[in-house]
Write a protein that binds this DNA or RNA. Structure first.
Lengths: 140, 140
DNA sequence: CTCCAGTAGTTGCATTTGCAATTAAAAAGT
DNA sequence: ACTTTTTAATTGCAAATGCAACTACTGGAG
């Protein structure tokens, strides 16, 4: 039990390295692929929502999104009802990238859960979801 | 299932933020507390081993250790058999810090696994250990 | 209508990080 | 014994990150 969060830390760091290497030729570095996936899946998401979803600093999120915009994977739109908001949309290029991102994610999942039964995989997913929720709202 | 690694990423980032805030008054920032824990637990560990254990870049590890040395939590020793190696040891100050680090870890675990049964906690730990091992040795 | 508080987005600055290259020592090969 | 390769540690450089502060907009209160 005492090693769960250590495993989590290691897994996160290791998968980040793998993902960044994988997508570097596509000009997606430093976890940009993670952001792009979220924008494709959540059309119209704002930066504040994205930062909260990923639990990253808003300024980091802004700069990463800015890079995705520069690389033409993402565009900012205007919310006519609220000039403050800048909903993010994936471009055609961004959407075309998504299947490769999805495949990568599946590969990571397959490699990481190799040797686990289907029941264990489902249970792991469920328990991690609970932990994520707990940690997201933790009062310490 | 498809959300396991996303949960892992979020948990890792969120706990890092919490830990860094917690230990900032002790001059332990940017995950330094994680490194210190490992050095206390593994007297004589080398930087290369530490970097591998944590799956961080060797230069990042070196610089973080350097900071722990400056803060007098860690010292470098000499390996008389191999001049290349610089085994790391926790100082008295570092060892005195360890109980607080442990308590923090227990608090995070308690908060994160709140609502899980004892069996689920044990299972989560076991499964995450397997995933960590898989990912650490992944060939993609 | 004006003012204030809250929210979304953004910037400045110092520090950290990761990749690639380098240095030093040990191990392996000839 | 000497040379080459491997391993551990380290450095240089460019880019990313996080905290704190700031700007702009919206909604609510007076």
């Amino acid at each position: 039990m005492s090693n769960s969060f250590r495993s989590i830390g290691l897994i996160a760091r290791a998968t980040a390295v793998i993902g960044n290497q994988r997508f570097q030729p596509d000009q997606l570095q430093h976890n940009q692929f993670i952001y792009l996936m979220r924008v494709v899946e959540n059309p119209g998401i704002t930066q504040t929502e994205l930062a909260a979803q990923l639990h990253v600093d808003p300024s980091t999120c802004l700069r990463t999104v800015r890079k995705l915009i520069t690389s033409e994977y993402v565009t900012r739109t205007v919310d006519d009802q609220d000039k403050k908001r800048r909903p993010l949309m994936a471009t055609q290029k961004g959407q075309a990238m998504y299947p490769a991102l999805e495949r990568y994610e599946q590969q990571i999942i397959a490699a990481g859960t190799s040797g686990l039964s289907a029941g264990e995989k489902a249970l792991l997913s469920e328990l991690l979801g609970k932990v994520a929720n707990n940690i997201k709202h933790a009062k310490l």
